[in-house]
Nucleic acid binder design. Structure first.
Length: 164
DNA sequence: GCCAACGTTGGC
DNA sequence: GCCAACGTTGGC
């Protein structure tokens, strides 16, 4: 039996709400996090992101830019089929079907942040001073979130985590 | 709409 | 292996 990690980790996933919003995730109940086409993010999905991990769902390129909700990883990395779909904008003709380049995970919603925690508000929180999201040029679409940052965001958002 | 930051590509 | 050119991300 594979060793199971003792404690879960936490992440921030970016999404443009015009493309896919936290409300969409609530509506769908769960979703395939497809379209990741960056090696650093892919490596995190492949090596680090596990079932039960927490996800802050961030709306980028939006008005307002904000963490809109909390989600949970419900399926670990597996090949993203859109890389082999020639009609998909995520198609990658160089990817080998026997050794797919791109992976995805599934996530499900846990709780909305109501109201959403805007980027502007996050900037004023001392506990989040070192958060990757707030650093200049931090384009990574899947970012690690520290335990302290996670706790601070959930407290600010009024989200009570169920005991697990 | 602008453009800084960053990742990728490809010529050499 | 270097690095200039290019494309994309995403805040402002």
């Amino acid at each position: 039996m594979a060793a199971r990690r003792k404690s879960r980790r936490t992440w921030l996933f970016k999404s443009e709400p015009d493309v896919y919003s936290f409300d969409d995730l609530v509506r769908d109940g769960r979703t395939e996090w497809d379209g990741i086409r960056n090696y650093q993010a892919r490596n995190l999905l492949r090596d680090e992101v596990k079932v039960g991990d927490g996800v802050l769902f961030y709306h980028s390129n939006a008005k307002p830019m904000a963490i809109a909700g909390v989600a949970e990883v419900v399926r670990e990395a597996y090949p993203d089929p859109s890389q082999f779909d020639p009609r998909s904008k995520y198609a990658d003709p160089r990817s080998d079907p026997d050794d797919p380049t791109w992976l995805m995970v599934d996530i499900a919603p846990m709780a909305p942040l109501d109201p959403p925690l805007t980027r502007d508000a996050l900037k004023d929180v001392p506990a989040l001073a070192d958060m990757m999201l707030l650093k200049r040029g931090a384009r990574l679409s899947i970012q690690p979130v520290t335990a302290g940052e996670w706790k601070a965001v959930l407290a600010l958002g009024g989200v009570k985590e169920r005991r697990r």
